[in-house]
Design a protein around this nucleic acid. Structure first.
Lengths: 200, 200
DNA sequence: ATTATCTATAGATCTATAGATAATGC
DNA sequence: ATTATCTATAGATCTATAGATAATGC
């Protein structure tokens, strides 16, 4: 029943990937190791040869989820060199993102859960959040008389909050309006944007 | 062992109050009925005469938590009639709020959890969120050329997101800076504010 | 010989229910 | 007579560990 080292490494990655998705869908406490391991094609018994504890997996899956999100931001930016921030904001504040909890922003899906965890998990989030800020900070350019990190923090806050709110309500129109209102308020933030006037 | 009707009603309220705090501290899945009932001074067996299920309590405790938050906003506004929005924002975007998860904003502590729940829980959140919006909408007055509900949505998004981010990181300075950056970006929003120039 | 995975299980905890008890409310 | 609460428990699930197995890697 033993597998090769590289197969074991692949299995390990599969567990982290499954966890990064399932934690976002159900919360850290919303899914057990048995279901997580089965989602990765293994049985529960194999878990502790790969991870020290569930908390260990929580930290690693958080890190993975943040990395994935940042990669998606980078890909979106590269595809839209004239207005990277506008493109990322449009992707982020979309109903598609609202519906896709398992593959969406980990700060929205797990930020409150992370606040209840130990410093290891928060370190994963802090790293990812700093990278978010660095990217936005680049994209907002040099706002006049403003610190670009402060500006980036305000922009990210609006994005995260709008998605949390959008997901917490039943009414689809209200959900959508939160995303649109946030997008509108962020319109001035990307210098590359062809100023489109009011969205309406 | 039976108690009077009014005592039973009080007990019921005590359970909802304890749950509204403990759910915010630990998440809906982070605390069991035994601990919840003990926090209210009862034993687990009494639970199902008062509530249909844990989900039922989750919905009612969410409603209670939102009501409490809105009451606090109203009290803050009354104490600061010249700039109610500025006062609420200052209270909300404070490190004290960051540290006080159990008594803080339920949207921050449980919004992501609510997104994973059924429509009853989301209805509690939607009601509370609409009340938040009504209050902010009044306080922002009539922003020029802008819809006041859209404006309120953007303001609330920034507040909620900043607190989620502030709580998800280890570094206190970073936490604080998120709150300050969000407050700064919202400075123009309250018409009653004595324009204080840059905070710096 | 080592070890990644499997099956099986320990011990704790979770939600929910059953039956006993004793005070309320008619 | 009704019923709010209590103790006790059923049955499921949770994290973590133990021991067997069979393929790897020296």
């Amino acid at each position: 029943m033993r597998v090769s080292r590289s197969q074991a490494a692949e299995n390990r990655q599969a567990v982290i990937d499954a966890a990064s998705r399932l934690f976002r869908e159900r919360g850290f406490d919303g899914i057990g190791l048995k279901d997580l391991m089965e989602a990765a094609g293994l049985t529960q018994g194999a878990f502790y040869k790969q991870f020290a504890s569930k908390d260990d997996l929580v930290a690693q899956a958080s890190e993975r989820a943040l990395e994935g999100a940042i990669q998606r931001w980078l890909a979106t930016a590269e595809a839209n060199p004239k207005d990277p921030l506008g493109a990322v904001i449009a992707l982020y504040l979309s109903m598609a993102h609202r519906e896709e909890r398992g593959g969406g922003c980990p700060v929205v899906a797990l930020g409150a859960d992370a606040a209840r965890q130990g410093s290891e998990v928060k370190a994963s989030f802090e790293d990812g959040i700093r990278k978010y800020l660095d990217l936005i900070g680049e994209w907002v350019g040099r706002p006049k008389g403003e610190d670009s990190t402060d500006k980036a923090m305000a922009v990210l806050s609006t994005m995260v909050g709008a998605m949390v709110l959008s997901r917490a309500v039943n009414n689809k129109r209200l959900s959508k309006r939160f995303l649109q209102a946030a997008a509108k308020s962020l319109m001035g933030s990307s210098p590359g944007a062809a100023q489109k006037g009011q969205l309406r």
